[in-house]
Amino acid sequence: MIYFDNAATTKISENVLEEMMPYLKENYGNASSIYSLGQKSRAAIENSRIKIAEILKIKPSEIYFTSSGSESDNWAIKDILNKKEKNHIISSRIEHPAVLNSLKYVESKGIDVTLLSVDEFGNVNLDELKNSINDKTGLISIMFANNEIGTVEPVYEISKIARENNILFHTDAVQAIGNVKFNLKDLDVDMMSISGHKLGAPKGIGILYIKDGTEINSFIHGGSQERDRRASTENVASIVGIARAISDASENIDENIEYTKDLRDYFLEKLLNVDGIILNGPIENRLPGNINISLKGVKPQTMVRYLDMFDICVSQGSACAAGSIEPSYVLSAIGRSEELALSMIRISLNHNNTKEECDFVFDKILRGMKKFKK
C-alpha cells in the first residue's frame, strides 16, 4: 500500500507503540488511585507532561491532555461564552471545521464573530485583522497551518498584534506540529491545539496548551483530573504515546522537513507539467508534505477510487469533509471557481514516503486523467 494521506492521520510509529504497550498491559492502573499500580500511571502522565514541556519550552503546568484537536479547539473557543464583556471573536474563513462549527455555536449564543478573508494563497490579511479589532474583542483564533492547502499562516505577527491589543490568541497547530519548527516561548500564544494522530501517536489523544495566567473554565465536568480543568479518567497509554511522538518529531525535525519538502517538490514538478493539473495554495510558505491540486474535468471521488484500486490512499480534501459533494470552502475562499473547487484532491506526504512511490502514483494519476477527463 502507498499511503499519501498523512494529513488525515498517520500510522502509529514503532517507537510510540513500544512505549505505550506497558500501559495497555501491565501498568493499567487508574492514575487517580493511590496504590502503586495507579501511581505508576500518574508518574507516566507527569513524566510525559514534563517531556513535552521541555520540547515546546513551556511549563508542565501549561499542558492539558484532551481527547483530540477538535476537543481542544472547542474548549478554547467556547470559553468566550463565560466572558460577558469580551464577546467578539476574530477568526478566518479557512479554519478547520472544529473551529468554524464552534464559532457557529457561540454565534448562536450571542457572540459576535468576524471571519477574515484570505488571499489567493490562503494567507490571512493582517490589515483586515487589525481593523476588525474593537473594545469587545476577547479572542483571536487563527490556525497555524491549513489542513487542505497547507498554507502556513503568519502566526508570529498575529501573536504580536494580539499582545499589543491585550487579546487572547488561540491557534490550531494540529497540522503544524512535527511539520513546522517552532517553540511556544518564541511564539507566545495563549492557547494552542495539538492532535497526536497527525504525528505517529494514536487517535483519541490531544493537547490544549494554556499559558499560565489565562482565564479559562472547565469544558468537561466531572472529576478533578488535569488540575480540575478537564475531567475524565486519563488515557495513560496515549498520553505516553503523544509524548514519545512529539519527542521523536522534535529530534528529527530538520531532516524530516528537508526530506519531505524535497519529495513534495519532486512530485509537484511532475504533476504541474500535466495539462489540466492546477496547484492550489502557495508554492512557498507551505507545509512540507502538502500537495493540493485540482484535476480539471475529473471528479475527485472518481480519481480517489481509481487510485484505491492500486492500493494508493489520497484524499478528496479534508478528512473531516470526505464524502461532501459541496465545493471545498477553503478553495472557494481563495477564489477558485466552483469547477476547480469540485475537482480537488489532496496528497500529503511525510518522511516515510519515497520517490519511487511518487513515480508510481504519478503514473496512475496520469492514466486516470486520460481515462476520466471529460
Results as ranks from 00 to 15, higher is better:
residue 67 S to N: 14
residue 68 S to K: 03
residue 69 G to W: 00
residue 70 S to T: 09
residue 72 S to K: 10
residue 72 S to P: 11
residue 73 D to E: 11
residue 73 D to Q: 10
residue 73 D to V: 10
residue 73 D to G: 05
residue 74 N to T: 14
residue 74 N to I: 13
residue 74 N to V: 13
residue 74 N to S: 14
residue 75 W to G: 07
residue 75 W to E: 13
residue 75 W to V: 03
residue 75 W to Y: 14
residue 75 W to D: 11
residue 75 W to K: 06
residue 76 A to G: 07
residue 76 A to C: 08
residue 76 A to T: 09
residue 76 A to Q: 07
residue 76 A to P: 09
residue 77 I to P: 03
residue 78 K to I: 02
residue 78 K to M: 11
residue 78 K to Y: 00
residue 79 D to C: 06
residue 79 D to G: 08
residue 79 D to F: 02
residue 80 I to H: 03
residue 80 I to M: 11
residue 81 L to R: 05
residue 81 L to K: 06
residue 81 L to I: 08
residue 82 N to E: 12
residue 82 N to M: 07
residue 82 N to H: 05
residue 82 N to C: 05
residue 83 K to T: 08
residue 83 K to C: 00
residue 83 K to R: 14
residue 83 K to A: 03
residue 85 E to V: 01
residue 85 E to W: 00
residue 85 E to K: 04
residue 85 E to N: 12
residue 85 E to S: 04
residue 85 E to C: 00
residue 86 K to R: 15
residue 87 N to R: 02
residue 87 N to W: 00
residue 87 N to F: 03
residue 88 H to C: 04
residue 88 H to M: 06
residue 89 I to M: 12
residue 89 I to V: 15
residue 90 I to D: 00
residue 90 I to A: 02
residue 91 S to V: 12
residue 91 S to F: 09
residue 91 S to R: 13
residue 91 S to I: 13
residue 92 S to K: 12
residue 92 S to H: 09
residue 92 S to V: 11
residue 93 R to F: 10
residue 93 R to G: 05
residue 94 I to S: 08
residue 94 I to Y: 01
residue 96 H to Y: 06
residue 96 H to D: 13
residue 96 H to P: 00
residue 96 H to F: 10
residue 97 P to T: 10
residue 97 P to R: 07
residue 97 P to D: 12
residue 97 P to A: 05
residue 98 A to R: 01
residue 99 V to P: 10
residue 99 V to N: 15
residue 99 V to C: 12
residue 99 V to K: 09
residue 99 V to A: 10
residue 100 L to E: 09
residue 101 N to A: 00
residue 101 N to E: 14
residue 102 S to P: 07
residue 102 S to Q: 02
residue 102 S to T: 06
residue 103 L to P: 06
residue 104 K to F: 01
residue 104 K to S: 14
residue 104 K to Q: 13
residue 105 Y to R: 05
residue 105 Y to I: 09
residue 105 Y to D: 13
residue 106 V to E: 07
residue 106 V to N: 07
residue 106 V to T: 08
residue 106 V to A: 04
residue 106 V to F: 06
residue 107 E to Y: 08
residue 107 E to C: 02
residue 107 E to D: 10
residue 107 E to I: 04
residue 107 E to V: 00
residue 108 S to A: 12
residue 108 S to N: 12
residue 108 S to G: 11
residue 108 S to E: 11
residue 108 S to C: 11
residue 108 S to P: 11
residue 109 K to T: 02
residue 109 K to V: 04
